[in-house]
Design a binder for these strands. Structure first.
Lengths: 244, 244
DNA sequence: AGAACACTTCAATTTTCGCTGAAGTGTTTT
DNA sequence: AAAACACTTCAGCGAAAATTGAAGTGTTCT
């Protein structure tokens, strides 16, 4: 019909309430299972399965099978940007629009991703743990998935012996009973870099809050305290001011 | 269905081929008549009329009635940004994707808007003409519309006596026979500032090309020559390098 | 004034699309 | 090995939406 860009098919894919709900749910970079998304969208599993198939087919999301689950995430950061751009066009429904704008920018700096840190801060901490050799990368073909965060990729993070001591010093306690993988990376959408998930990610965030370094300000927004600024700088060599 | 932003309705509005074609056609800030858009979309006038009504209703475009025409333009720059964001998600169809990216950035710097200059250069020239008092603003409630460019707003640009001399010196010849308004402003989408349309706008671009100051590089992209750089600087005090 | 024109509204047809339960495949648990 | 679970495929139902010509309103041209 028109020689220009094929906006119509993409927009049509996003223009169905259930599919839009899926994209919004995935917009922060998480990878969620089909069943979770079905609840989110409020439709039958069979219905959502069809929608997910179309979204995958259209290149908007990608699948990562993991056992009996299939985890879906946005295929590219451009998709998240398109979702945001559309949200900016029609912000009339939710009355708080200015609040939401600041929320959106805060979420990009430091936020939680389910139960661990994400955003720029999450990425910085992940880098720091690797640099100080608290955590090491191990390539491993068949790896388990974190049922909370979603599927990982083909390589695995492990805690070094030195790391175990350092973490003990910091007071980070790892839940031994859980079968959930110790460390996992999670691809951060806004930064396009991996951050820390798994049991370690959750334990770290928990410890940071106990230490009074961070405060859960809002649903997913994290605020860093003065103590947190000095603490992160001393223990992890992270300049939190530079993250702004 | 979901408490988040109402992306679905906006995306659905954009997800129909005819409507998408309309939005793409309007994406560069032009205001086009319904009949023009019908041809562009390739559907019957009655069909397009319905689509346009829905787009207006959804707040994506706005109407400006002018005589027996009705001119449509994008309601807000956010809409153009959303269209661009969507185009970035699905650039797979047209094979040239890198080319198109550079085209998009070039179009923002200097481009033509039908038959006159737009983009940053168009805005700069408009400013210069006002500063040097070649053109003056006159508030005028009922004004005519330019059938090529589209509808104007509520105030009108007129050429001053001094301006007439200056333009004569430059060799700009205005077509006297046409009933098309002499000067009109056109709201530039990418700059959010008015630029020059009407007979003067067309005559200026024409003269610039004859002088060898500019070259029509592509469909709507304009390239400024070395002569153009010095000429624009001398005659209009425009630093073309700063426009990059 | 009349004709041509631009556009919208309307009613009817056709197509498309979403929804679902039941059945099927494969995985994990016990 | 059997049962529970996660997900997909399929066929059929129902609703929403796109398309169009014809008719109606208003404007401009001669």
């Amino acid at each position: 019909m028109d020689g220009d860009a094929d906006i119509a098919t993409v927009a049509a894919l996003m223009g169905e309430p259930s599919r839009a709900a899926v994209l919004v749910a995935l917009a922060d970079g998480r990878a969620l299972a089909a069943s979770t998304l079905a609840v989110e969208a409020g439709v039958a599993p069979s219905t959502l399965s069809g929608h997910l198939a179309r979204l995958v087919d259209g290149g908007l999301i990608s699948v990562e099978p993991s056992g009996r689950h299939r985890y879906f995430r946005l295929a590219a950061p451009e998709v998240a940007q398109a979702v945001e751009a559309l949200a900016r066009v029609a912000p009339s429904r939710p009355i708080r629009s200015l609040r939401q704008a600041t929320h959106a920018s805060a979420i990009r700096q430091a936020r939680t991703c389910y139960d661990h840190l994400a955003g720029r801060l999450g990425v910085a901490i992940c880098d720091s743990l690797l640099n100080s050799e608290i955590v090491r990368v191990e390539t491993n073909p068949g790896m388990a998935a974190d049922p909370i965060v979603g599927a990982g990729r083909s390589n695995q993070y492990v805690i070094t012996e030195y790391g175990k001591e350092r973490l003990k010093d910091l007071g980070v306690e790892l839940d031994q009973s859980s079968r959930r993988p110790l460390v996992l990376y999670c691809l951060d959408w806004s930064e396009q870099r991996p951050h820390l998930g798994g049991r370690l990610g959750a334990a770290l965030l928990n410890r940071f809050i106990v230490l009074g370094w961070m405060i859960q300000a809002d649903r997913r927004v994290i605020r860093i305290t003065k103590d947190g600024q000095t603490g992160l700088c001393q223990e992890f060599a992270i300049d939190t001011v530079a993250l702004q």
